[in-house]
């Protein structure tokens, strides 16, 4: 087991919900895992927007992020499905296509970097928790079991496309439910649990009215199932659920990122979870 990772921050967590960043740093510390800053990393870049605009730019910038981690000799750990999707896909494309490696290295050479591939992995923090750290160790750290009924939101880029991710069943996954229940809550089933939050693919930016309709559909199903919180593993889904409830009447379901949930269950200082950044107040 690797006990040291390069922490990839992305955009939404550090710039909109810094509590997610803080919680991640503290939770992994409590689990004896060393997270090292990936200094100078940028946007992943976002798959739904930047990759949709220009694949060459997307791949070159993703390769730069990967090269920074490769230079450190550390696997990347992400706290966002978007970052995970982007960096994982980029590493996969480069692994499959040597011509693309040549193409990006021609660009990276201009900034003094090189990406060789095959040396480092791109990991999602939830996968690291589940596979590497394990449920037993996690359970041993719980001092404050949060016995709520919660709705787990997997998001799209955690297990999909499953052909390359090979993490969990894309339609009936269980990893996140197991991780949530390990620290106390009961994960309730709800209609269209695997559906997208609505934010991805540049939809939130381009046509938020439509994105919000999708979010509202999910919120209605979560409410109907009697869930008290939504638990996510992606700051973008997190933002979409949290902010949409400001504009759609009838909902006040707090949204908690899994790192924050773990921080609370591990008895870390509540004020370190940055819950005041949330639009829907988190009352525990």
């Amino acid at each position: 087991m690797t006990d040291k990772y390069a922490l990839f921050l992305g955009c939404i967590a550090p710039l909109r919900y810094p509590g997610i960043e803080k919680a991640t740093r503290e939770v992994f510390k409590a689990l004896d895992v060393d997270l090292v800053d990936l200094e100078g990393a940028g946007c992943c870049p976002a798959p739904g927007v930047i990759r949709s605009f220009d694949q060459t730019t997307w791949l070159a910038l993703a390769a730069r992020n990967l090269a920074l981690a490769e230079k450190k000799g550390l696997d990347i750990i992400t706290i966002c499905n978007g970052c995970f999707g982007s960096l994982f896909d980029a590493a996969h494309i480069l692994h499959e296509d040597p011509a693309k490696v040549k193409e990006v290295n021609k660009i990276l050479k201009e900034v003094g970097l090189e990406y060789n591939g095959g040396k480092i992995k791109v990991r999602h923090f939830a996968d690291v928790l589940h596979k590497d750290i394990g449920i037993e160790k996690i359970k041993s750290k719980v001092v404050n079991p949060l016995q709520y009924k919660v709705a787990v939101h997997y998001g799209c880029h955690f297990a999909k496309p499953s052909k390359i991710k090979q993490l969990d069943d894309p339609e009936r996954p269980s990893i996140l439910d197991e991780l949530v229940e390990a620290v106390g809550p009961k994960s309730v089933n709800y209609r269209d649990k695997m559906m997208c939050c609505g934010a991805g693919g540049g939809l939130r930016t381009r046509a938020n009215d439509i994105a919000m309709k999708m979010t509202e559909e999910k919120l209605a199903n979560v409410k109907k199932a009697g869930a008290q919180f939504i638990i996510d593993v992606c700051p973008f889904c997190h933002l979409q659920y949290d902010r949409t409830q400001k504009d759609v009447p009838g909902y006040d379901i707090p949204v908690i990122h899994m790192a924050q949930l773990y921080g609370l269950a591990f008895g870390l200082p509540k004020e370190h979870m940055g819950l005041e950044a949330h639009v829907v107040p988190v009352k525990l």
Binding site: S52, K160, P161, P170, M194, C196, A207, I210
Partner: peptide, 12 residues
């Protein structure tokens, strides 16, 4: 063309 959220459900 811009209504897809890249959720990959169709791909699965």
């Amino acid at each position: 063309l811009w209504m897809c959220t890249t959720c990959y459900t169709c791909v699965e």
